[in-house]
Every structure is written in C-alpha cells, then in structure tokens.
Design a binder for these strands. Structure first.
Lengths: 136, 136
DNA sequence: GATTAACCTACTAAATCTATAGGAAATACA
DNA sequence: TGTATTTCCTATAGATTTAGTAGGTTAATC
C-alpha cells in the first residue's frame, strides 16, 4: 500500500506544478485544495524541501515552490524520498540493498526471482514518468 | 514492502512444488528448510489451504501438499491471497476497489494516473509467472 | 490408547503510520 | 520598531498493522 505521506506528497507536487507560477504557495492553500491535514502536509513538504524538490520562503507572501522544471523531476526520485525503496524486498533493491537473513542463496530464491521482475517493471513506469506527465 | 507472511508463503509453496511428491510434507520440515518460525508458518499454510492452494492431512505421516499443478497456480492469485490487493491504492484496484475519500475526481488525480500504470505493470509480471516458473 | 501433526482462537510485543502540539525563527509591512 | 504571517523544528500520542507466541482441540496412525 502507498502511504498517505507519499500520496499527499505527490498531490502537493502536482498541485505546485499545475499552478505554474514561480511565486510561493502557502501550505494552507495546498492542504485545503487537496483535502489534506495541514500539519501533516507541513512535515511532508519539509522533507521534500530538504531533499531538493522544493524551495521555501518564510513570512507573509511566503510558501513553497518547485525548484526544478516538472519535466526534470522523475518519479523514481520522488518515490524513493517519500516512500522509500521501490523494490518490495531489500535483496532486490538498487538503492537500499540488504541481504535477507533467512535466505542462504539469493540466486536460488523464488521470492528474489519474482520480486526482481516486479521491481524492474515498477522502475520502468517511474522512469517513464516525470512530474510533468502527471498533470492532466 | 512485501510482508513476511507473503514471503514465507511463497517460499513454502515453492518448496512444495520443488519436492514434486504427492505425499504430505510436515510444517516442521518446511519451516526448518526455509528458516521460518514454525508457528508463524502454520498460520500461513492454514490460509493457503483455506484458499484452495493446499490440501492437508492430519496425524502421523500427515502434512501439506499442493492441490494443483504448479503450472496452474498464477502469481496473481497467490499474491492476492497472501498480500492483498496488487494495486498500491484502492482506487485503482481491480479486486478490492474503493473510492478515496479525499479525492473528488479520480480521472483528474495524478496519484491515480501513476498508480494505474504501476498496477498494470505489476499485474503483467504476476500474470506471466506461475508457481512453476519460480523453481530454478 | 498413545503418539503424531494439523487445526483453531486468542493474545502480545514491536514497529510503523498518521497525525497533533506547541513553540522558535524568519520575513513583510505599517 | 512592532505586529502579523508563515515556515521551521522537535517531541509525542493514538491507531493500525505486522510478526510471532501460547495453549489447547481434533483427527489420523500405529
């Protein structure tokens, strides 16, 4: 299941991209427009800023804005920051690899075999979609 | 992330398929071979039996066995029983559809748009893999 | 009738998710 | 200078899910 955090983060990014203005948008406005708890959204936008997706400005007329062109924001990086690994098991993860403690040999593991394919197919989707592609 | 339940369930099914004997295999044997807590595995095999994947026999010489040919067990059905919906959000689920309460219009939702593609790509993998394909 | 092994329910500990609280820091504007 | 605005940041709490355990029941075998 996709976490609410990721869902809300994606919606916020999409909203900012659709606005298409360089002036900052307040958390309150995004939260209201997307039906998200403002405080929760606040923490999500914070991590998006800390990870280089958003810029921010404090005080009156402040808010958040996209730093890059939506065309240059691939879903792979957004998903990794918000949701974590794209792979469903650590032993097939490209960026978060970890060995399974119960599995003696990955090459003989049926789960590994299946989840490798799932990872690749998901990766292809995320690579083929930028933030710009999500705007209808 | 894939749950341990699904992971262990897949491993157990693969083990049974690789054994290729029609005689029942005890939980203890599967648990030992796959490094799984026996009690936990017990509950997993129970749901696999209740959902028509396994047969069982009690008493001495008892255990679990595959009811169908591995070729006839698609990963779609295994995953749905063990892990639940294949879709990452209910609003794009084929078998577990639910409307999002925060989303006024699915057709305009960027999350829906992206997750629809992810679902389709995962579905293709699961449809192209039967239990027989997981045996190396 | 003793042993074996699945069956079943209930419970618990830990982790994760989804927020909320409350104030600090910076900016704008009068 | 001072007040309002809005982001920044840490801590925490409640709910849910996950992973696993406990303990006894039922059915089959020998």
């Amino acid at each position: 299941m996709l976490s609410k955090k990721t869902k809300y983060g994606l919606k916020a990014l999409t909203y900012l991209a659709s606005i298409d203005s360089k002036s900052p948008v307040q958390i309150a406005e995004i939260a209201k427009h997307e039906n998200i708890s403002q405080k929760f959204l606040e923490s999500i936008l914070l991590t998006l800023r800390r990870n280089g997706f958003l810029g921010s400005k404090k005080g009156k007329g402040g808010g958040y804005y996209l730093i890059k062109d939506p065309k240059d924001i691939p879903m792979t990086s957004v998903m990794r920051v918000l949701e974590g690994p794209i792979a469903m098991v650590p032993c097939v993860s490209l960026n978060f690899y970890e060995k399974c403690d119960d599995c003696p040999d990955e090459n003989e593991c049926s789960v590994n075999k299946l989840m490798l394919q799932v990872r690749d197919s998901a990766l292809e989707v995320y690579r083929n979609n930028t933030l710009a592609d999500l705007i209808s």
